[in-house]
């Protein structure tokens, strides 16, 4: 797209129009070749059109191929108007899409499909040539013209557009690979069920950046519980329901997440606890409330095993002790 946009701007410059290219000195050789494209293509087209008209005028079977000839001329004139537009100053950009309104370069490239060779059982099927006598001079001229238009006029811009598309597709393919490796393989089957149900109607190019968590097992340790100095054993539980975001800029590795937590009943508790858990990358922080056997309610701060390891944190310590140990060990 960009090369074509610059091509349009530079064409405008050559024709005396304003544009960002005006600051540049003479363009390099390859660019100069590009700048000639509309003029050269128009000359080729005009040449081919004249030859076709002459061939048709001298064709003894011209009545039989008239409809075909008219159709080809209509196509040529449409292409000619697109090429003429390429020599004009660039059209305004659409604010929403950032694309040029009625972008003539795009129109020339789109014409490419019209000029593709149609090779069916009958090789003359192009433009319905199967209805026409094979030895007609008009048909022979049309065949030459088709090859010339396809190769010299519509081919180059179509190739440029496809090159840009190929780059987009490669990036998308790599992103899906990352998503599959880092996001979906961490899911449990029942989570896949929920996510597949939610994703089912998405277009396949919209790679999800968020997945649902459902009954996702989690383990952690109690880091702090009120004023009590004692801390409980490691806790097992599950995120009943939650959301996990993935970071496309980090190959779809987990970024933030949030979930409702339920933990299994720990020793000395009357019932299992509930709480909230927030995750960031590999680490999880949470708060949990449960009721002890004597009826008191206890609120505990939780961290994941990963984070506990990071702190060199053994399950029998409180967070305060762990942090103070960390401070002591880091003091010279």
């Amino acid at each position: 797209m960009r090369p074509l946009a610059s091509l349009l701007l530079c064409t405008a410059l050559l024709l005396g129009g304003p544009g960002p290219c005006s600051a540049r000195p003479s363009p390099p050789a390859a660019e100069a070749q590009q700048l000639d494209f509309p003029s050269k293509a128009l000359a080729t087209l005009q040449d081919s059109l004249t030859r076709l008209q002459n061939a048709h005028a001298a064709d003894p079977q011209r009545d039989q191929v008239k409809a075909l000839y008219d159709q080809a001329v209509r196509n040529l004139l449409r292409l000619q108007s697109s090429l003429e537009a390429l020599r004009q100053p660039p059209p305004p950009l659409d604010a929403a899409t950032g694309r040029a309104l009625l972008d003539p370069a795009r129109r020339v490239a789109q014409e490419h499909r019209v000029w593709m060779l149609n090779f069916d059982a009958d090789p003359n099927q192009l433009f319905g040539m199967d209805l026409a006598p094979e030895d007609s001079a008009t048909i022979l001229a049309l065949r030459d013209l088709q090859k010339q238009v396809y190769g010299d006029i519509t081919g180059p811009p179509a190739a440029q557009f496809l090159e840009a598309k190929a780059k987009e597709l490669q990036v998308l393919a790599r992103r899906w690979e990352d998503f599959y490796t880092h996001a979906t393989l961490q899911e449990y089957p029942w989570e896949s069920l929920a996510n597949a149900a939610l994703d089912r109607k998405r277009p396949i190019d919209a790679i999800p950046t968020r997945q649902v968590k459902l009954g996702h097992p989690i383990s952690g340790v109690v880091a702090y519980q009120g004023r009590s100095s004692s801390s409980g054993p490691p806790l097992m539980g599950a995120e009943l329901v939650g959301l996990q975001w993935f970071d496309p800029d980090r190959s779809y590795k987990p970024s933030w997440g949030i979930g409702v937590l339920a933990t299994v009943k720990a020793e000395g508790e009357r019932q299992s606890g509930v709480g909230l858990v927030v995750s960031y990358r590999d680490f999880k922080f949470g708060a949990r409330q449960s009721r002890l056997s004597d009826g008191r309610t206890v609120t505990q701060a939780l961290i994941s095993i990963n984070l506990a390891r990071y702190f060199d944190f053994s399950p029998n310590q409180s967070l305060v002790e762990a942090v103070s140990r960390l401070k002591t060990s880091s003091t010279p």
Binding site: A109, Q110, R113, M116, A158, F161, L162, K165, L169, D205
Partner: peptide, 9 residues
């Protein structure tokens, strides 16, 4: 759906 059909069959 990614626009290839606009330019090529």
């Amino acid at each position: 759906t990614h626009g290839v059909s606009e330019f090529q069959l």
